Every structure is written in structure tokens, then in C-alpha cells.
Amino acid sequence: MMILLDQHSGLAVNPALVGSIRFSKFNGYTYLLITMKDGFEVQVAHRPEAGVDVAKLHFQLLEAV
């Protein structure tokens, strides 16, 4: 099962390949940082006006593991 991270770009990840997830704040913005098991890192910005809620994505990834 894939988790859609950004509907506009179509970015999705396979939760089975996720190594870690964490929140980060930079310049007043919140990001979800997803590190895959192979070391590749995906950064998703919290953009509720565009339908991207990183807290909800974090929960979906935790539930999928």
C-alpha cells in the first residue's frame, strides 16, 4: 500500500520502505522529514491550503507500519 504525500505532485511512499519519520521546523514552517531505509530523504512541507497536512501524514505512516 502506498501513502500519498502530495496530491498535486503525486508523491507517494511505500510505508514498508520507510526507515524513520520526524517533524522539523525551519524559518517558521513545519516539515515532515521521511528517511527511507536506503537513506533517501523526502521532505514534505505543511501546506493545509493545498491539502497537505503533515500531522495527518505522520499519523497515516505510523498506522501503516
Rank of each mutant, 00 (worst) to 15 (best):
K25P: 01
E49Q: 11
D53M: 00
E63V: 12
I21G: 14
A55R: 10
V42Q: 11
L33I: 12
V18S: 15
H46Y: 04
E63F: 07
M2I: 12
T35Q: 15
E63A: 14
I3K: 11
Y31G: 02
L32A: 04
H58P: 00
H58C: 09
V18D: 14
V65M: 10
A50D: 05
P48L: 10
K37S: 08
Q60W: 13
V54C: 11
Y31I: 12
F23D: 00
S24N: 08
T35R: 14
D38F: 06
G39V: 06
S20G: 07
G10A: 03
A50W: 00
G28S: 04
L5Q: 06
K56A: 14
L33T: 13
R47A: 08
L11D: 14
H8S: 14
L17T: 08
F40H: 15
T35C: 12
L61K: 06
A55G: 08
Y31M: 00
H46V: 01
V42F: 10
P15C: 12
S9W: 06
T35I: 06
M36T: 02
G39I: 06
G39L: 03
M2N: 15
V52T: 10
L11N: 12
E63G: 09
F40P: 00
L61E: 07
V18L: 11
R22A: 15
V13Y: 08
N27Q: 13
F40G: 01
R22H: 03
A16Y: 02
D38S: 02
P15L: 10
H46P: 02
V42H: 15
V44T: 03
Q7N: 11
